[in-house]
Structures are given as structure tokens and as C-alpha cells.
Design a binder for these strands. Sequence first.
RNA 1: GGAGAGGUGGCAGAGUGGUCGAAUGCGGCAGUCUUGAAAACUGUUGAGGGUCACACCUCCGGGGGUUCGAAUCCCUCCCUCUCCGCCA
Length: 443
Amino acid sequence: MAFLILFHFPEFSGQFCRRFIMLQIQDIRNNLDEISGRLSKRGQDFSSLLKTAIEKDDVRKETQTELDSYLAEINQASKQIGALYKEGKREEADQLKEKVSELKSKTKDLDEKLKAAELEVYNVLTQIPNAPGVNVPAGKSENDNKIMSTHGEAPVLSQNLPHWELASKYDLIDFELGVKITGAGFPVYKGKGARLQRALINWFLDRARDEGFEEVLPPILVNEDSGFGTGQLPDKEGQMYHVTGDNLYVIPTAEVPITNMYRDVILNSSDLPIKNCGYTPCFRREAGSYGKDVRGLNRLHQFDKVEIVQIVNPKESYDVLESMQKYVQSLLRDLGLHYRVLLLCGGDTGFASAMTYDMEVWSAAQERWLEVSSVSNFESFQANRLKLRVKDEEGNKVLAHTLNGSALALPRILAALLENNQSEEGIRVPEVLVPYCGFDLIS
RNA sequence: GGAGAGGUGGCAGAGUGGUCGAAUGCGGCAGUCUUGAAAACUGUUGAGGGUCACACCUCCGGGGGUUCGAAUCCCUCCCUCUCCGCCA
């Protein structure tokens, strides 16, 4: 295991692995009870892991202190040797050399011990997910998620075709053609289907800009460091497409390149908040997904998404989370969709997130809710990996808080729009999109 | 793909075996002067670990080696730039 990690991530053997790992060990030391309590909301007891982390770190500290004292002696002796040579005192110098080589043999063992200790701390810490925020309900599964609100009403329809049938009826999306070109999960959007897709992207981006997000158009291939920075690597490697020839990964979300723009950065607090939005196609291998859940646009290997990202002062992150989830709601409302807002319980909250809202739209024909957005506050969990820090007024450096959300993911929005707005005359296009796509009815 | 050059602090750019965590300039911060600002002058200004605070340790692209001692020498990997070829 150790070899595997070191092999894939040479930086682990350097300072990277030493201090910047997920939850901060310093935080765990200072707020053990609080963090333990928050983590328990995930429906699992992490207290022993937390204790182990501290114990392992104690060993690491001890070892380092011991090693450092030897290194200090060696450094001093080396300086003396230089001075002795200058004075022409060969013999004394040679004696000291022997002493140094003795000391050096001791440091070799200690150095190995230190690296092993660091790896042990790392291995423990990476098993610990982010501590859920104070308002996150306890719970083990999606059944414990809290429905915060439901908006609009399910449409009353004279016909009720699922979106894949509508797509085929009006020649909007060709799934079989995608299979021919690439494979399942890579649909071809055609005609008004393609135009509607483009309209949604542009509308989402314009709305985000009005909301103060600066648009970026990032690369969709990222290197290993970036994959690690946002936590896709090393654990979720199998979920990304991997271009082995160049050792690059195809992004599963714009979060990866956008957030990594701020990797290894120390910001001034006056730079905050940083608000970025970006459109990218997203690619997910979705290995092991089958069945009716993946029918049509429900689950794809390639899809389009506009993402919003914020980097904020730690004190403000929960207020910002609220404003972001309200913003996403405003999009759904303007599209006239029947939707609901879930606050995920501890157990359903993603590994890196402290608090997550999911937005789900109603699929009239499938008669179920489809997740179209996930808005999360990562607190400092992600910033810790990224080494993204803020210098406050006193010059103290603290980890920034990062947040992101989909605003929005396109396929399920399109599915809901098609299904919910259908009638014998055709499919009505939401008013806000008409200027963007140039038609108000698909018939 | 072929040939060459190079990776040093926020940036530019010195440093080719010892007292170098690193000259100098720019930028940043603080102060003097000024009604205020600019200019000028003075001081200050990398990151991480460790400590009550010091001490001390680590870091000059990554990893390894030579040496009492490495930014400096050797090996190796990665990356960037320039020219040629190919090409949206």
C-alpha cells in the first residue's frame, strides 16, 4: 500500500504528505470532542480513528524531534570541520568526520522511521471524512435526508411520454447514434435538441455572471496533481476516464480544474470572496450502473454542466452556502420546474463535504425526482488538500473555505423540461430560454 | 516527432562546494515628509515543522547519489521555453 501511494504520488514522500491532509491534525487535537461529535452524525463512530490519528502523530513528532537534534549536531560539526581545515588542523577535522559519520548512520534509521510515521498518519487521516456542519441532520442513508421545501406542482398532462420517447418523436436526441460513434451514455443531440442544450448553457452562464460569478473556460483534461487536489485521486480513480498515453484525466466536473486554479495559493483576505463559474462537458465512467435508472438522459457518461465555485473567508462559508443554494433555486423557478430541496443527512453527505443541499426536479413521466444540483460547503477539507490559504489582517495564514454547486447539470433538466411541458401540440419552451434558442415550441 | 535552452523567494534575476534561506531590482507592508496623494527616504517582507516563547530542523522543479558539508557536482524523472516539422 505504501509503495503504491508513493509510486503514484511522489509528492507524498515530501512535505505534501506531512501536514496537509484532509482534516487537519492540529484541528483534531484542539477540538477532538467537537469533531468526534459532528462525525458521529454520519452514523458511524470515528472517535477511535481520531484517537489513532493523534497517537500516530505523536510518534511522528517524537521521531522528528529526535532526528532534528541529530541533524543539528551534524550541521554544527560540519561547520567546525570547514573551520578546522582553514586553520590547517587536519587531524582534528578528521576526528570530527568520524563522529559525523557515526551520527549519520543514526539519522538514516530515524529518517526511515519518520517517513513511515508520516505515512501512517496519512493513512489514518484519509479514512476520516469531513465533519458534518452543526445543522446537518444525523442519519445513515438517503432516507434520513431532510426535505427542506417543495416548490411548484406536478403538471397535469394530457399525455405523459418519457423524455426518451419525446426525444425520438421530435428528433431531438439520438441515443443509438451515440452508441455507434462512441458507446452507451454518449447521446447525440440534434436540431432543436442541440439548440435547446446550447440555450441552457448560455442562459446558465449569463445568470451566473449576473450573480457575480466570473466565467472561466478551463481545460477538461487535468493532471494527477489536480486530481489529487480535489480528491478524485487516489480513491475515486475508477470514476474518471484516464488518458494513459499522457497520464491525464478527463474531468468528471468543472469543479476539478476550477478549484485547482487555486492550488498552492495564499490569498489576501481582501481578495475574497472569489466567485467563478464555468461550463464544461463532464465525463464519468459510472462503472456498475445499470437498469432503468440509466435510461435516456438519467445517467450519462458525457454530459454538460455549469458549475459555480466560491472561495471564502471561513467565517462566512455557511452564509455563502445559503446564498448559493437559493441562487440555484432561482434558476429552477425561472425554468418553471416543480422541484424540491433536500438537506442531506450526515451519512448521505459526500466524503469531502460538511454540508450539502441537493436539488431535485420532478420527472412527470417517470414519476420520480431527479437530482440536478448538489451545493456543498467543504469548509477547509478541500483547501487542506489544495494548500489554499488566506492571510488575514494580522498576517495569520488560515485555510480558506471552498464551496461549489451545479448551476445546473443539463441532462436531467432537459429531461424534466421535455416531460413536464409536453402536450399534443408539442413541447413548450420556458420563456426565459426563448431568446436564447429562438423558438418557443418544439413540434 | 527532431534540435537546443532552462527550471532559484509574489515577479525579475544573481549565485557553480562551506558563514547562502539565498545578493540586487520591482512589487507588498510600516514609518518619515505632505492638508491629502505622488515622489523621495528609512525600516520590514518566502513556506512548513517544532517551542509558552526561543533554540533548532526541512525546503532553491520531484526523487536518488557523491561529500564532513550541495542551490552549486553526478544520475534519473517531470515541466517550461525557443527553432524546425506537422496541424486545428
